[in-house]
Design a protein around this nucleic acid. Structure first.
Lengths: 163, 163
DNA sequence: GGTGAAACTACGCGGTA
DNA sequence: TACCGCGTAGTTTCACC
């Protein structure tokens, strides 16, 4: 829960991140060819990026509707002891269907992203999980009708150094 | 832009997805041990999941602030010719800093997630990109102060069949 | 779905600048 | 500190059962 000391990434590190972001299963040999380096040197850099927690996880993006998760919703939540108090947020984060919990500026305190099977399941989640969090004052649910774009990938800059 | 025909996933497929979602670089040999199968059988299933587009991508989660992306914002956008018209959404999706574009139920038409370096960059993005989309009527920006949870991973069900 | 073999890759180490 | 080359162990991938 601390860190972020002295992270210095050069353009090679950024190129590695760009390649791995697009395909985490790319081989070191393949990356080494692109970068005109030896595979072992690439591996060393990757290991360091993992250590420094620049790389957080290698994950697989799964089609949500293929596994029956057809509903996406954003929920704005207002809590009673609002400012600086993250306990409500932590309770929300414990719910496994909750993908994201953000503390936001503005009148609502939290913005939550939920992915779930259908509207009946959402109702159930509301009754069984959200309602148990006693600090919640009000809830406003926004249903997503269609997702036009959803990428986790970040725009990795080209420049040399980031502190 | 079609598909999703006859996707039938059994409990082994779901187990594979669960393992690969947590670590996309897991070896077939490792999965085979967990599932008590031969590595080649696992590989076959993985290839089929890729073909069926159940697996969409192998990606690497990168710490955004490590590459200088310290600002996250949600933007609610109202457009002029609202209902059923996705052209505005498509324009929004073209902006690379825009990670997500959702068409939502309710008074605002679109919900957009943007990740960018800082508030100055956001201003710049507004001026250079959003303002070019002439169908946009109004914009409401919500800045994220702190992210308590952000996982792409889905809750993969345990049951046998999903149509 | 399993087996076996060939090709490929990861990974650690010692050496270089 | 970063890169390279090599050797070994482990993995992917294929045709075939």
């Amino acid at each position: 829960m601390i860190v972020e000391n002295n992270i210095n990434l050069d353009h090679i590190d950024l190129a590695i991140l760009r390649l791995m972001q697009d395909n985490s299963r790319i081989s070191n040999v393949h990356m080494a060819k692109e970068l005109e380096m030896a595979p072992s040197a690439v591996l060393e850099r990757v290991k360091k990026l993992e250590q420094k927690q620049v790389i957080q996880q290698y994950t697989t993006r799964i089609n949500p509707s293929a596994i029956g998760l057809k509903l996406l919703a954003f929920i704005s939540i207002k809590a009673s002891h609002s400012l600086g108090c993250t306990t409500t947020a932590i309770e929300l984060a414990k719910i496994e269907e909750v993908q994201e919990v953000h503390i936001i500026a503005g009148e609502d305190c939290y913005l939550v992203k939920v992915r779930i099977a259908d509207s009946a399941s959402l109702m159930e989640l509301m009754r069984n999980s959200f309602s148990k969090i006693t600090t919640i004052v009000s809830i406003r649910t926004t249903i997503v009708l269609e997702t036009v774009k959803e990428q986790q990938q970040l725009v990795i800059p080209e420049n040399k150094k980031i502190s």
